[in-house]
Nucleic acid binder design. Structure first.
Lengths: 323, 323
DNA sequence: TCCTGCCCATAAACCCAGCTTATGCCCTCA
DNA sequence: TGAGGGCATAAGCTGGGTTTATGGGCAGGA
């Protein structure tokens, strides 16, 4: 069950990376309202009244009033305009609410995932998925599934391709998801998404200012920050370059690779799924590639011949796409 | 100061949209650990020990121990393997930690934004930005800026292009950001990013299954879910189609448009910045366009001749990119 | 005009989650 | 074998968030 996604591996590099002033207030939790408060704010925005929002969340009106007020005190910003006819967001409140919505959405994904991790027994749909898929894609799918079929209890088991295959063939999972170049024997599959690997550097790196795309030769000749040998991304890269990728550093988790690249250690190769924030905040920039395609297919898999039915089919139909 | 981003506008459509089983547990906050607990989990993952994590967050070891334990109880999953030599994440714990990281990152963006909203007075860098930029891009930039120059206090004022220009020209802001087709008179500008508008539908819509790209004519002929007239996205769309966009519904917030599209009311036109989760979870799918380009430039602006210096220059250099 | 309904604020009392302090046990390494 | 780092448990405290109870403002219908 390769413990490749080791978390302690991050240690040095997170420290090395640019978390400069972070230890300042020692913990963001004191500066950001709790999830319950953010949720309340969203409800107020949506319903236009403290009381209604309170009712929706199953608390009393004074509780909501006090909670919003203490949030305003904490943030130092007036969030809602109270009136005897209801409450509207102020301009600043609207902005804060938008930011809050993103926090709550991340929390919903967390919840969907965690719930699937727990159920384990007697669930109607047992999914086995590779790490990348479980981490980035599955929570969203589960939220969508819950919207369509609210009473489908899902259980999730994450592991590598071999483990996924094993579960499926033993009848211990109803649907699997794997990444990688080959499909395990005994399984049928459908491509569900593509994961593109991207070359990134810190904005200061010379490659960040290149205009000409990078050739396969150059990429192969340059030492890169990489996941360890045997990892999914490494396999794809090695295959695309003909087994030639030269590691500058090898790290055991995607997070560590990201942090190391951000700190300017060198160019890194990463799944585009792992790079959200970093790209849009320009902590990292992409380097265009000329003659290399670092794609890999993400596949749904099931035992040969046994087409998914029932809840498994529902989930599968959510994920099928060419995008 | 157009209150165009009205939040109460969402009311009907959020309700109409697919928030089917959501009211179930009435509030996600009871099912997701608080931000402080998630942060603690990240620290444990990074530092490899409950005690060290506790120290970093300024609490005692028993507090950390108990908090992790209660989180495990709440989630029904063992998160860390304790040993007399330290603590490592379990496999499930690693996954949960990855999900938690995304929540905490969203909270960091929230914090960066909220802090800028508060300062207002005596800050070293006063920024005026349009709504879209303030909502989606600025928090990331502020985080990056804080990493580089930890002691730059930033204040933010959000408004439309005219308001941004006014502030800059009155010397009440040091740097502005606007979206839209034209640059207000009296300001110099640099393109900082591009915002692409995208046509999206619910997966069930006929357009979701089209193979042929959509022509401008077809787009103009079809009633669409749109922001209200005068909004930034509407201006771009009207310009691209020659003032012809036909509204199916007009809504006053991006969120409302999204929700309406998800619920299957019809095709919508939205900024790609607004569509993260929805696309990857396939709650919405994009429709390719043939002969229309719905781009708009996002620009940094400043009073003609007065090139930004100091902190404003720092921020500007973070954002300059052709990506 | 008054009354009823919906809205929000304030005050007082309560409860429990999470904290600290104080121990104890386990393991490893010198 | 003692020291140090790591975790768990127990007891006691505190404060934020809650409820119940009440009051006041504004609208709209009788």
């Amino acid at each position: 069950m390769g413990r490749t996604e080791s978390a302690t591996g991050n240690t040095e590099h997170e420290a090395a990376a640019g978390r400069g002033g972070e230890t300042a207030g020692s913990g963001i939790a004191h500066r950001v309202p709790e999830l319950g408060a953010l949720e309340l704010l969203l409800a107020v925005a949506r319903l236009g009244s403290l009381g209604r929002a309170a009712r929706e969340l199953g608390i009393t009106q004074p509780a909501a009033s006090s909670r919003i007020r203490s949030m305003e005190r904490q943030l130092g910003v007036a969030l809602v305009d109270r009136s005897p006819r209801g409450s509207r967001l102020t301009d600043e409140g609207a902005l804060v609410t938008d930011w809050a919505r993103r926090v709550v959405e991340a929390a919903e994904a967390f919840d969907a995932g965690a719930q699937a991790l727990r159920d384990r027994r007697d669930s109607r749909l047992r999914v086995a998925a590779s790490m990348t898929i479980a981490e980035y894609l599955l929570p969203g799918w589960l939220i969508a599934l819950r919207a369509q079929r609210p009473d489908t209890a899902v259980s999730l088991l994450a592991g590598n391709s071999a483990a996924v295959a094993e579960r499926l063939l033993a009848g211990e999972a109803d649907l699997g998801f794997v990444e990688g170049l080959s499909v395990p024997v005994g399984l049928d599959s459908v491509v569900v998404a593509r994961d593109r690997l991207i070359v990134v550097t810190a904005p200061g790196h010379p490659w960040a200012r290149r205009r000409a795309p990078l050739s396969a030769g150059e990429l192969a000749a340059t030492p890169l920050i990489l996941r360890e040998e045997g990892s999914g991304t490494r396999q794809v890269l090695d295959a695309a370059l003909g087994g030639l990728a030269r590691p500058l550093i090898e790290l055991s988790s995607t997070t560590a690779v990201k942090a190391s690249a951000v700190s300017g250690a060198g160019p890194a190769v990463l799944s585009e799924l792992a790079l959200g924030e970093e790209l849009s905040a320009r902590r990292l920039v992409t380097v265009e590639l000329a003659d290399v395609r670092l794609d890999r297919a993400l596949r749904a898999v099931w035992p040969t011949g046994h087409r998914p039915t029932g809840p498994a089919r529902d989930l599968l139909s959510l994920t099928r796409a060419f995008h």
